[in-house]
Design a binder for these strands. Structure first.
Lengths: 234, 234
DNA sequence: CGTTTATTTCTTGTCGACAAATAAAATACA
DNA sequence: TGTATTTTATTTGTCGACAAGAAATAAACG
């Protein structure tokens, strides 16, 4: 008599399904695995994760709350678009948050914060050395998020992380189109920022954060300027 | 034969239930009708709105996403507490947002924006004249939200509105404990801000926003200093 | 052949019910 | 009487099913 084959790992803890779906979809959206405009189908996801639509739905509500997906009433829901026309507002906001969080980190960091920040910077340097674009983007985010945490202002940290995540989508396009030697420069700037924070030099931290932000903004703007030229019909 | 009595208004449009519950709970939380720590019971709400637990749940997930309620896994969910120990981070953030949004409004406002802002200011003045504390809080929020809208940076607007809403809870306590003549001063400062915005005077807008914010922060701090004295055991 | 109307299809929104997890109550035990 | 253990109760998390809405398709009509 043949043994009955059971599904390998159908076991899941009670409240874990939502977080699982949320985290995975979030990553896929930010990595552009699910590019803007991708349709999100509830039943399809329910089959994929072999669970009911209810927890899927809860994860989608959360993602919608963060603006990562758009829901048309009674109709489809899809990955939200990047508003290229208003990118300047994004740059404006993220530059300010770079400055504020770095300033506050210089002011309020505790002894335990610096090792964490340095660890993230080491990860970033490793990703740069390996020329791993996806890892660079992720570790860069974590590095700055750690600085924001050390600044001890949850409101700024929340906005900054949101902006960094939205930036992940934009940076993903950036690194998709060309790889140059700038990442090394970013790594060096990170080191300077750490030094300024460790020295509790608020003004230096602010200056470095601003130039770091300007640097990134300029790079992205150049990318889009180039793309726009390509878009012109001949 | 007696007519069968039907429930008066059981009709509700398909996707409207969630928004209904969300808006109402949100208002009750921000007005302190539901003070921090109040238990939120799903079945109770389901009965109150005569609908299933599913839409209630969705509304709660959204509120949790904004940090207005805290959810203990598998156990109760309740209105989130106000973190009085870290109020300074709140003041820091809202002061910066007052400044940024007012600056940006001075820079980017369109002809259509000023009438809207003035309308909200008129509502605020009316509430002040009527000594209606709740209306003052609500119209003050709307006034500053309108300025933020005119600044045309959705990231700042979103954070600012969130801070203003969180502030609604704090201000509610403020006006509960004592009414003085300061609201008139706030109304005057509002007028000055409108003038600066209309004149596109960024520096003046910034200065006024900063002093306005400082004014409010100082008032709240005085309230809490007073409360703290009362809290000391005799 | 083009336009309007009916039908089908597909997705979402809502429901009632059940199972799991935890707290509270009751019981057993020293 | 105090503590540990079992039982009950309450609340949440998940499920499958059904109905409403809107787009896509088919049909009717000029």
């Amino acid at each position: 008599m043949a043994d009955i084959i059971v599904t390998p790992i159908p076991e899941r803890k009670r409240g874990s399904g939502v977080k699982l779906v949320y985290d995975l979809l979030r990553d896929e959206i930010l990595d552009l695995t699910l590019p803007p405009g991708s349709p999100i189908d509830e039943v399809q996801l329910a089959e994929r994760f072999s669970m009911s639509r209810t927890p899927i739905r809860e994860a989608l509500v959360r993602l919608a709350g963060e603006g990562l997906i758009d829901t048309l009433p009674n109709r489809s829901t899809m990955v939200s678009n990047i508003d290229f026309l208003n990118l300047h507002t994004f740059f404006e906001a993220i530059t300010l948050m770079y400055r504020m969080t770095t300033r506050l980190a210089a002011k309020h960091h505790n002894p335990g914060d610096l090792p964490i920040i340095r660890a993230h910077q080491a990860e970033f340097a490793k990703a740069v050395a390996a020329q791993d674009a996806l890892a660079m983007i992720a570790t860069n985010r974590d590095f700055h998020a750690a600085i924001a945490e050390a600044g001890r202002n949850p409101y700024f940290t929340a906005l900054f992380c949101r902006l960094l995540d939205e930036g992940r989508r934009i940076l993903r396009m950036y690194y998709q189109s060309f790889d140059d030697r700038l990442p090394q420069r970013y790594a060096d700037e990170h080191e300077e920022m750490i030094t300024a924070i460790a020295a509790r030099d608020v003004d230096a931290a602010d200056r470095l954060a601003k130039s770091h932000a300007d640097q990134i903004v300029r790079q992205i703007q150049q990318l889009f300027a180039r793309d726009q030229r390509q878009d012109i019909a001949l």
